[in-house]
């Protein structure tokens, strides 16, 4: 009375995590930041996210078909959605709809699938998409809004949609009246015209440390980031070293020349530093895999970001920092291989 069984290979253990699970948790962790963003800057960002997600899924489907890969399995991994959301969070809230189209074309088709698809891409797709639109369309990418609390005109949802889809403002509005420089831009412009950082900080766009509104968004991104750390989706190495490098170098610069350098905390709470540190630089595919490698990677991104902010041609440098370090990651991995047990 014997019984037959199907074979299987060890370990006979349910897996603890799935790729889909990783991606979904990253999205959950972004929610507080997105809510804060909407709260401070209006519903434009939600439209950007929606557009980017739609284009991302369209291009993903197209490329999966071309590459003859199973649609359900790969669309179901949510990786394209994560790319889209991270990309959209870098856009000005009123950017025209085709910005998302162009960005996702380069992110999903070029940076991701032409390099071999999920897990094979050398560069972070969201950052490739962002840098392409930033360099190609500098004018529209510079039209930022002030926080709604200090805005002279608060846009209705209809006006937001109209602007995004027609590219023009509603009657009676002009970009001069509704747009406002970001805090990083404000410092740049102010320094360029020979004023001190402290004078630039008189502008209403500044809050306690960084930009008004921006610092709260950064706080909530960090909250999401801590949750990812606690869930072991990301490791501490990249965010700590990246922010640490910016603070350390920023402090040196500030102590040497407080007139033309902001206090280091302002660097942390403006621009994309916190978002980049917890959500983008930590992208496993394009980051280093060993912990020692991640330390170097994080420091590298931090140094490049601060250098571009201080001396480069762009107000923020997180995206460039990440892409440049993506390039260095395989080499860093090669030289930070841990010593094997017993060797």
């Amino acid at each position: 009375m014997s019984r037959k069984f199907d074979p299987g290979v060890a370990p006979h253990f349910p897996p603890q995590l799935t790729v889909t699970g990783v991606m979904q948790q990253v999205l959950y962790a972004l929610l507080p930041g997105i809510i804060a963003y909407t709260w401070f800057f209006g519903p434009g960002i939600l439209v950007q996210i929606l557009l980017a997600v739609i284009f991302a899924l369209l291009f993903e489907t197209l490329m999966l078909k071309v590459r003859k890969l199973p649609l359900k399995r790969f669309l179901g991994d949510w990786s394209a959605v994560v790319t889209a959301v991270l990309f959209a969070l870098c856009l000005p809230p009123l950017a025209p709809w085709w910005i998302a189209l162009v960005g996702m074309l380069f992110a999903i088709v070029v940076a991701k699938h032409l390099y071999g698809g999920l897990g094979q891409n050398m560069f972070n797709p969201a950052m490739v998409g962002y840098v392409v639109v930033l360099i190609s369309f500098p004018r529209v990418m510079a039209l930022w809004l002030p926080p709604t609390s200090i805005a002279s005109h608060s846009l209705t949802f209809g006006e937001v949609l109209n602007t995004i889809f027609t590219g023009s403002l509603s009657l009676g509005l002009s970009w001069d009246t509704i747009s406002e420089a970001t805090p990083l831009d404000a410092i740049r412009i102010s320094l360029a015209s020979g004023r001190m950082v402290s004078e630039a900080r008189q502008s209403p766009v500044f809050g306690d440390f960084g930009g008004l509104g921006w610092e709260w968004i950064a706080n909530l991104y960090a909250l999401g980031g801590f949750w990812l750390l606690w869930r072991r989706i990301i490791s501490w190495h990249v965010p700590v070293m990246m922010i640490g490098a910016v603070v350390a170098l920023g402090l040196v610069a500030y102590l040497v020349d407080p007139g033309s350098n902001p206090v280091p905390l302002q660097h942390v709470f403006s621009g994309a530093l916190v978002l980049g540190a917890f959500f983008i630089a930590t992208d496993p595919v394009t980051c280093c895999t060993s912990n020692r490698g991640r330390l170097i990677f994080g420091v590298g991104v931090g140094i490049i970001t601060l250098s571009i902010r201080s001396w480069g041609g762009y107000p923020d440098g997180v995206a460039f920092g990440i892409l440049l370090m993506n390039m260095a990651a395989p080499l860093i991995d090669r030289y930070t291989r841990p010593r094997i047990f017993g060797h």
Binding site: V22, G117, P338, I340
Partner: peptide, 21 residues
């Protein structure tokens, strides 16, 4: 699914190997 190079395998390896590699 394809490897996403998350490095979890290396974190848990008692022989200090890089399994994904």
């Amino acid at each position: 699914m394809p490897c996403i190079r998350c490095g979890e395998c290396a974190r848990v390896c008692p022989a200090v190997l890089l399994p994904q590699q």
